[in-house]
Nucleic acid binder design. Sequence first.
DNA 1: ATAGGGCTTCCAGCAAGGGGAAGGTCAAGG
DNA 2: CCTTGACCTTCCCCTTGCTGGAAGCCCTAT
Lengths: 135, 135
Amino acid sequence: MNIGAAAQACGLPPKTIRYYEDIGLLTAGRAANGYRDYGTEDIHRLSFVQRSRSLGFSVAECRQLLSLYTDRDRASADVKAIAEEKLGEIDRKIAELTALRVTLGHLVAHCHGDNRPDCPIIDGLSGDRAGPSKG
Amino acid sequence: MNIGAAAQACGLPPKTIRYYEDIGLLTAGRAANGYRDYGTEDIHRLSFVQRSRSLGFSVAECRQLLSLYTDRDRASADVKAIAEEKLGEIDRKIAELTALRVTLGHLVAHCHGDNRPDCPIIDGLSGDRAGPSKG
DNA sequence: ATAGGGCTTCCAGCAAGGGGAAGGTCAAGG
DNA sequence: CCTTGACCTTCCCCTTGCTGGAAGCCCTAT
């Protein structure tokens, strides 16, 4: 199976697959002509990484998960620890974005948004009620 | 005012201020000794960018906001349009992270997290209920 | 033989800076 | 006067996770 077909199968672009090989995340065999050659187990791994990435795991975390995926004797607690850490990160990001949304939402709500220059958003970003001094 | 003092005043690291100058976001005058020299208006602009960045605006957006900040005759609607676009982005990101949190939360909730190898998280990432085949 | 696709490699670059080297400057202390 | 140390300058490389492109090889079809 060439890289193009593998890409179709796992949902990752060929460039990304080569990149993952480049950084040592996944390896691939080579056919006689020098082309990368993928088997079904390779596709499983690629898909595993694709799903992990889409769930927000970094490439470094995917590397860990992949080794846990391969090691059939690891404790499920090892996997759960990584996932819970990631859950915490997601929660923190949501909280941060929510706070951001509130602040920006206030600014937007108070801006009349017409063709007059007076703008509470700019004033808010300026940190005072005046905007830039005029001269 | 040297860059270090300016950095203290606006809450941005010196490196970042130099970077902003490098990409043409902000300019600074030079003292006789070649050091960058900042006045109060420069500090206002730097602080403006710092607050904009901390509210999630990209550097490109800061560039727009900065020109709107400077232009005392622009319509507040121009500013509001950018802010509302950003608000939409924030909402989309929150929604995406929330969905992610639900999915990953389900996986974590179903993983017993003990020292047995059976792990619903790995199974979920594998896209089937088996994990990698053993042979 | 030739056209076209797909494959290979390497090189450059995006956001948004951070780290650190090599060297110029300035103010204080002995 | 000299040194020390903090600060400033420019420079380039590193990061994360890819993406695009150029040059060139391989394979298939006609």
